[in-house]
Design a protein around this nucleic acid. Structure first.
Lengths: 173, 173
DNA sequence: GCAACCGCTTGCGAAATGCAATCGGTATGA
DNA sequence: TCATACCGATTGCATTTCGCAAGCGGTTGC
């Protein structure tokens, strides 16, 4: 995973940033899953990322300016990863990607409810979500503090589908 | 490049489709460059795709249902590749990707003019473009036949930038 | 007849990936 | 105090993929 600079085309350069199978998965888990630590990303990843790949991609995303890294005051060995504005502005792309996948690919119902809500919410919801992410990761003040965050709303919808489909059973989030 | 089905998440499945460094480049060249033949894609690719990779990706995109392949009546050995609806609906994603790359990555001026116009045109322009692609690749009637196609407009803008930046010189399109 | 072109394949070295085990250090609880 | 679990990685190794160059049998135009 090097940075080729094969051409100055915006689409090509974007692909060189996250044109691989893991970078966007990591960002997805940070954005929608609220994960901030190495172990959270490692164990929480639905697709089962390997630890060396995760370490490599985090380093790469740091170098690219998509993430920042800071010490966790609660634990000397813990590191907290934060999204930068560069990464936060991927939300519309992730929304489109999810919407497209929902139409054309064999998505599972419980995992696509988030994409469905995000698509229905449209740009206003994306803006609200990005505002929340800026607050969470960059320490910026919230434009309009809401009672229920976008992430919590999406998560609740996901859990409702899981519960409906498998009543009485418990499933990992 | 296999099809893992690592999870039913829409974003993950989308990544399994074009989460590599070449698939979207090929589709970009077909959509914005109007390329339909193997050699056009091979020699016209700004990033210099290798012929075996191109062959592999075309096969993959065929299997995924993003492309179809037909004989070219003008030449017994020529094949014409066409976009399917599945691929045409990537236009908004490509537009977003280009817009994001233009903000955050070291794009070249001449190669980003298309992305700029596509972003400024917004969804109405994307719809018009997709309509033209449906006409071109699927044989559907045009909703509102226009004098200048979106692709020609983008191409003209690109060439104007090239001409302005290097007056008197000639550059490959 | 012959060079240029057609889509595509082959061979091969280099690089990336996936997997499991492990590292040295840190918090936790008995 | 001491075992245990956890922390962010790193290492070794087998497998897969990539990138490059050359070449394939066949078609076309001059």
């Amino acid at each position: 995973m090097s940075l080729d600079r094969r051409s100055g085309c915006p689409i090509n350069l974007s692909l060189e940033v996250f044109g691989d199978r893991w970078s966007l998965i990591i960002l997805r888990d940070m954005i929608f899953g609220g994960r901030r630590h190495f172990r959270e990303l490692l164990n929480g990843s639905m697709e089962g990322i390997a630890s060396n790949i995760l370490a490599d991609r985090l380093k790469r995303l740091l170098e690219l300016g998509m993430l920042t890294k800071a010490d966790d005051p609660s634990h000397k060995q813990k590191a907290i990863y934060s999204l930068t504005e560069m990464a936060i502005t991927l939300v519309p792309i992730l929304a489109h990607l999810g919407a497209w996948g929902r139409v054309w690919l064999p998505v599972s119902e419980e995992l696509s409810i988030r994409a469905e809500l995000l698509e229905k919410g449209g740009p206003p919801l994306w803006d609200k979500f990005m505002d929340e992410l800026r607050h969470e990761h960059l320490g910026m003040p919230l434009d309009t503090p809401a009672d229920a965050t976008v992430r919590a709303t999406l998560q609740a919808a996901y859990e409702a589908v899981v519960k409906r489909r498998a009543p009485g059973e418990s499933t990992a989030a």
